[in-house]
Design a protein around this nucleic acid. Structure first.
Length: 777
DNA sequence: TATGCCTTTATTTTT
DNA sequence: TAAAGGCATA
């Protein structure tokens, strides 16, 4: 006997039931961590459908594609697949990309527009900066890109920018008065290339809904019920889209947790959720405060941290779950040791409690921290999977294949063209490309169009040999386009990989990396195949290449097939939002790392870091571990660390210190060793050492260990050791030059150099501060 | 024009 | 430390 919707609703507690059964009018659900908000959302949608609302009239916006897929799956289990299929459910970006494709012509875009990822945007901005002859040290392309992105997310168009004295002044003050110009050129170039960046997908949707009332009306009527998950992470642009679409029926349901707002850095505005009740009339507010996920210890510890934030809604998260173990806090000497501790702790827990790898997760603030964890897990033979970081679709070889596919779908796509016009090498170099770009900009045409009409442009100073090469490239792309009219996406992609010589190039390589890249391309092709078959199943069409590319552009690493093998999960805290793990390790809890040094300038930034920590801690179901180190490698250098303030912000009664936190490492006076005297100004800056006596032993053990791990040592070690001990006549070994004999020494202190006669490398003069030398005799 | 070596530079988070 | 860009050389 199949369960009906009433059976599902009966499973809910009363706080969950109310919002689930809410029917008309605006509503907000403030949902504490682990309080079952996804359940409420899915049941509510299923309930609406059971009450006769057509699936076509429901729009549900989620934060990740994965969340959308999972929710759709759950709804399908309740109301049946054929009905659930008709729901509009996805991320803001993917839903509105679909709508923009339908309405593209109104905005002057082709319906097969390309989606530029961040890298594409940055490359384009770099070339604009270069073309304008601007100083790349003043106009850093990443900063410029994020500035433009923030304009777009606030709906500041180029025109609006030029009307806004404040913004222009701010840029002038920052010594970058030509930002507006770059912005303008960037927008024009994207438009000309038939490309939208991530922000455009929202900005252009706003443009569409504002400029074309009939389009707005169409989608207002279609989406009679709108649900938004993770509302605390919406930006202004998203806020306006939701507001416009829900304006007619006012059936807007937003769900979120202000305490979990962690995307302000990319434009999310926490005020959207804080002010929701002011923005809509007659809002009904619901709260979900019972946590089903975590132990009492974890819930209350997390509460005690978030209490330190001033900007927040009143909320009291509680749980009926058992107390659970205290949160274990451990101090390690280095990041390497931190990794080894985590790995061995996972190992022990697995043995002791009969757990799977999948029961564990390691969370960190920055991707760079994964390395130490990986090394340690590998040594212990614990399988793991890294989420995020360099995603599959960002690998060079994958982007190369995708670039060809992008060109054949949209030949105007300049970034894709530049990427592969000469890869594999076909004799079209930088000079030629520059000439083409100048001509293209001059005629306001795409580079590809210039290439197509190369015969009609005799003024282009390109020799006949190169002209033939360009012709061949055009012909090749055109042959792909013709094939694409009849063959399915997989057949085309496979053909492209072969015909362009990409596969050849990698086969020729032969190195292990080359082989891995080859396999990646194969995986990509399999992905296309899966996509084609999925589409066939879904709606009988063979998915087009254009649709595949869109999927890829908007995919995140979390969306990838994880397979069903049992692995420990490694990811940044940002990526972990919405997930849960029985055993959780949060590593690198140090000042300047977490909270990040870049995020401590303002109160609101620090509060966001704290919310981030709250998110991290509330991922844990049974047991949480916090670790920090006394020193870790950052920027390739060993730096001293202090425990994060967040540890001390947790009420002590929820913590178990495996090492006493108040002990501060005794800092050796390295300065004195190098310069022969102590730099007193630095000493004075040091914080007073608290009660317990300094632990000299620890630091010495630490540096001894380090020396063992890296013979030859890091830069400062070497200067320290070799600077004083190396003599003429010593036999040394260099990583690249091999063995050699020290002929003579010159300079003092950090500038000390050695002239060394190598057995095979000849005579070299090396700065001891940098040279990686091992004294062997 | 292509390659390889050297220098520089950046490391916060990502749809 | 690692990746990426720039410069010099063939």
């Amino acid at each position: 006997m199949k369960k009906n919707i009433q059976d599902y609703i009966a499973e809910l507690n009363s706080a969950q039931k109310e919002p689930t059964l809410h029917k008309e009018g605006p509503m907000i659900v403030i949902a504490g961590a682990g309080s079952g908000k996804t359940r409420v959302l899915t049941y509510r949608i299923a309930y609406l459908m059971s009450e006769g609302v057509d699936a076509f009239n429901i729009l549900s916006l989620t934060f990740t594609n994965k969340a959308a897929r999972e929710m759709k799956g759950r709804i399908a289990a309740i109301v049946g697949n054929s009905e659930a299929k008709n729901l509009w459910m996805g991320t803001f970006h993917s839903i509105f990309a679909k709508i923009l494709r339908i309405e593209a012509d109104k905005l002057g875009y082709p319906s097969n527009f390309t989606i530029y990822d961040t890298q594409d945007s940055q490359r384009l901005i770099s070339s604009i900066i270069k073309e304008k002859g601007l100083d790349k040290d003043v106009y850093k392309y990443k900063q410029v890109q994020s500035r433009i992105s923030s304009f777009k997310n606030s709906l500041i168009t180029v025109k609006a920018y030029y009307q806004n004295g404040e913004l222009q002044e701010a840029d002038a003050m920052a010594k970058r008065p030509r930002i507006g110009e770059i912005y303008q050129e960037y927008v024009e170039r994207c438009f000309k290339a038939g490309a939208m960046d991530f922000d455009d997908l929202l900005l252009r949707t706003n443009e569409l809904l504002t400029r074309f009332p009939e389009v707005l009306a169409k989608y207002q009527n279609r989406f009679r019920y709108i649900l938004v998950d993770e509302y605390q992470d919406t930006n202004h642009s998203q806020y306006l889209i939701v507001k416009a679409l829900s304006d007619k029926f006012q059936n807007i349901c937003v769900v979120g947790d202000d305490a979990q707002s962690i995307y302000a850095f990319r434009g999310a505005n926490i005020n959207n959720i804080l002010n929701f009740q002011k923005d809509y009339h007659g809002v009904k507010m619901y709260r979900l405060e019972q946590n089903y996920r975590s132990t009492k210890n974890i819930v209350e510890a997390a509460n005690s941290v978030i209490e330190h934030n001033k900007t927040k809604l009143d909320k009291d998260v509680w749980t009926h779950n058992e107390d659970g173990g205290k949160i274990k806090v451990n101090r390690l000497v280095t990041d390497g040791e931190e990794g080894r501790y985590v790995a061995s702790s996972i190992f022990e827990n697995k043995m002791e409690h009969q757990l799977n790898n999948g029961d564990f997760a390691i969370l960190y603030r920055t991707n760079a921290q994964s390395r130490a964890m990986e090394d340690a897990l590998r040594k212990r033979d614990i399988p793991y999977r890294i989420y995020g970081g360099l995603s599959f679709y960002q690998r060079k070889e994958i982007k190369d294949v995708l670039a060809y596919l992008r060109i054949l779908v949209n030949p105007a796509d300049e970034e894709a063209l530049k990427r592969v016009i000469n890869y594999p090498a076909r004799g079209i170099g930088q000079t030629t490309l520059e000439k083409l770009t100048i001509t293209a900009n001059h005629y306001k045409r795409s580079i590809f169009e210039v290439m197509q009409n190369i015969q009609k442009l005799p003024e282009l100073k390109i020799n006949s040999g190169t002209r033939t090469k360009l012709d061949n490239f055009v012909t090749m792309i055109q042959s792909f386009q013709i094939m694409n009219q009849n063959a399915n996406a997989f057949e085309v992609a496979e053909h492209v990989a072969k015909k362009t010589g990409l596969l050849q190039e990698l086969k020729k390589d032969g190195t292990p990396e080359g082989v891995a890249r080859l396999e990646n391309i194969e995986e990509l092709l399999n992905g296309v195949k899966d996509f084609v078959e999925e589409q066939k199943e879904l709606d009988g069409t063979t998915g087009s290449l254009a649709e595949f590319l869109e999927d890829v552009a908007l995919a995140t690493d979390l969306d990838q097939d994880t397979g069903d093998d049992d692995r420990v999960a490694l990811m940044t805290i940002h990526l972990s939002k919405g997930l849960e793990f029985p055993y959780l390790y949060i590593v690198g809890l140090e000042e300047d790392l977490f909270p990040s040094a870049m995020s401590m300038n303002t109160r609101s930034e620090l509060e966001e870091e704290r919310r981030l920590f709250y998110v991290a801690l509330t991922r844990a179901e049974k047991q949480a571990y916090l670790t920090y180190t006394q020193s870790r490698y950052r920027w390739g250098k060993l730096v001293d660390c202090e425990p994060s303030r967040f540890i001390e912000e947790i009420d002590e009664k929820y913590l178990e210190y495996l090492t006493p936190i108040h002990e501060r490492r005794y800092k050796p006076m390295i300065d004195a060793d190098i310069f022969g005297e102590v730099d007193k100004s630095k000493l004075r800056l040091k914080k007073p050492v608290s009660g317990t006596p300094p632990k000299r032993f620890d630091s010495e053990a630490a540096s001894r260990k380090l020396r063992k791990i890296k013979p030859g040592g890091g830069a400062s070690n070497t200067a320290n050791n070799l600077g004083t001990t190396l003599e003429a006549g010593n036999i040394v070994e260099h990583i690249r030059f091999g063995k050699g004999k020290v002929v003579r020494l010159e300079g003092v202190g950090g500038d000390k150099k050695a002239e060394i006669l190598f057995e095979n490398g000849g005579l070299k003069k090396l700065l001891l501060r940098f040279a990686k030398l091992n004294v062997i005799g």
